[in-house]
Design a protein around this nucleic acid. Structure first.
Lengths: 350, 350
DNA sequence: TTGAAAGCGATACCAT
DNA sequence: ATGGTATCGCTTTCAA
């Protein structure tokens, strides 16, 4: 800001009152202490002068910055902006502002982001970056700093967290495929050190077992990241060497896209030869080729609830966990299996 | 933060020195004033105690919060996260942190966002929300607050701004279509009160004129928003009543998608019946059906440059403008025109 | 080279 | 109901 902004002192002088009286008017809790008439007079002067409280100065005294540090893996991954919006909108209702930093899933960047935000005196953190075992989460918890996890959870469940029901999602996914007639289903499941990856894989195995469906050795393939490239790589492995299958449950939409790419590269078609189902229902998923069948995850709500959990802790309430439902969105990447079981490891097309 | 954090005073006491000496060590400019030996001793103690400066307190004194308010139309629009990342990465190098708020293109929300950030003592603003005539921009400028515009510019060019070369983009778009053999080209151009919308429309008309191509009355259609819905609406109008055309330059990818939707709804095909080209090369544009021919805009760079311009002003340098190039990405939504000129307003399919 | 003290803008406790 | 004053954590000018 450039022009010297108007301060409490300016208002006090204009009102011919002491600065502390003016201060009292500002806060709802203390406003009752001052004569209603003078209070209103001060209100008028504040409006006239266009006074805006300096929240930084206030924070220095109250030890509350009214800001929340938000660490996000990657804002350019289209699901996270929804999380951030949910956080932002909910926080705003309580006068809080999120400070968002990207980590790129990089520990160094995460550290720097954390430090930068901490030195800005954020009142706590919301993280979408948790690993199943996460030193940063432990550190924050140990320091007694308010924390809410969103999307990804830690294994020890020490922290407040909002996640979506992966069990439900995988069940819906598998049942959908089974209903279409699939029996040999593969799982390209995402990183094992991240709760969503592990939960989707575990859920898959559980549900398959519960339905009495055998999962052939080698049909469950974790990846090293939720990326198109990993989807391609693992799908190629599956097609090259694994047992036959007619459908795959992918750990998220990016992996699903990668799987489809790998299929296409060999002249195989989705869903005619192999059905593929993803997770996230990410932006434009319904407009891809083919439109993706996927599990919708309400990311905005995840963010909103995470903000709630965060605010809860500031109010002294104990941490708790919230789980939101996933819902199946059937589009065109899934269909009945081919009559002659597909994906019989054809040689590379051409 | 919960545990009482270690302060400068703690460090000073531990060192048996005065707080101001310790303070001097912290800042590169004043560090020279203190005995190198004691400076190093203080460094050690700082490390040992895990002292982190309280930037809020520092800001109160220096009147620099080292934060920048960033107002974004809509973070869930996949181009803006790239802008934000560019801003964030560049700002970080100078120790600045962006505070991001969404406006939803809503004036009220914009005001609230601005106020919230201003009261947090941001050192200035970066806006992606500018209208061609924008009261908020004027206000910020009039107050002498550092400001950089990104993506969208104001007509009076008073502010520092980073935009992409719409003229170049439209030229590339039109030339591409002309080379394919199109002559009757429509323009679904986006809102006129936003610089990108207006510039793309103006560029279109200019380039068409320069190539000696007549644009039939009614083939240039501004929209009220950069949305799929608007694309559909206007494309329907075009197909219902306008003169014949074989291609359309859409104001952005969302509009292009809407156009394609409208086409499909009538049993018309893109690109066989009508070629469509968009702007932005947004996330997944290459994986839509059909993959979109579009103008790539380097949004990350736009954000990075905007941060540079912002920092420039803090350093007292005068505002300037930067323009970055757009590049044509040819995919599958454009093709030679049909032999029998398409889009002859067929009755609604069915 | 280091110490002392004022002050950034606000809050909150103690007095009156 | 209002005023006075210390203080939050740090920077910075002035002294020593």
């Amino acid at each position: 800001m450039s022009q010297r902004p108007v301060t409490l002192r300016d208002v006090a002088e204009a009102a011919g009152l002491h600065i502390s009286t003016v201060s009292r008017v500002l806060s709802p809790e203390t406003r009752g202490l001052v004569n209603e008439k003078t209070a209103q007079r001060i209100d008028a002067i504040i409006a006239e002068l266009g006074y805006e409280p300096n929240r930084v100065a206030r924070g220095l005294k109250t030890r509350r910055s009214m800001t929340v540090g938000v660490l996000i893996n990657d804002l350019t991954n289209p699901v996270f902006p929804y999380v951030v919006r949910g956080i932002e909108d909910t926080l705003a209702k309580s006068g809080y502002t999120p400070l968002v930093a990207n980590t790129d899933g990089d520990l160094d960047r995460q550290r720097r982001g954390f430090d930068a935000l901490a030195s800005r005196q954020v009142d706590g953190f919301i993280l979408s970056t948790a690993l199943r075992e996460d030193p940063l989460v432990e550190e924050i918890l140990d320091k007694g700093i308010p924390l809410a996890l969103v999307v990804r959870n830690v294994d020890n469940h020490r922290a407040a967290a909002v996640t979506s029901d992966e069990r439900l999602g995988t069940r819906l996914a598998v049942e959908h495929l089974v209903e279409l007639g699939h029996g040999a289903i593969a799982c390209v499941s995402g990183p094992e050190h991240i709760s969503t990856g592990a939960a989707r894989r575990a859920g898959f195995e559980e549900v398959m077992a519960a339905r009495g469906l055998r999962v052939a050795e080698g049909l469950v393939r974790p990846t090293t990241g939720f990326t198109i490239k990993e989807g391609q790589r693992v799908m190629n492995e599956l097609l090259d060497g694994g047992p036959p299958f007619t459908a795959v449950v992918a750990g998220n939409d990016m992996l699903a896209i990668g799987c489809i790419d790998a299929l296409k590269a060999r002249g195989l078609r989705c869903p005619e030869d192999v059905s593929i189902i993803g997770f996230n229902d990410m932006y434009m998923a319904g407009r891809l080729t083919p439109p993706l069948t996927t599990l919708h995850v309400p990311y905005y709500d995840l963010g909103a609830y995470a903000a709630d959990l965060f605010l809860d802790q500031l109010a002294g309430r104990p941490p708790r966990e919230i789980t939101v439902v996933q819902s199946l969105i059937v589009r065109e990447s899934t269909a009945p299996p081919p009559v002659r079981p597909a994906a019989k490891r054809p040689k590379r097309a051409g």
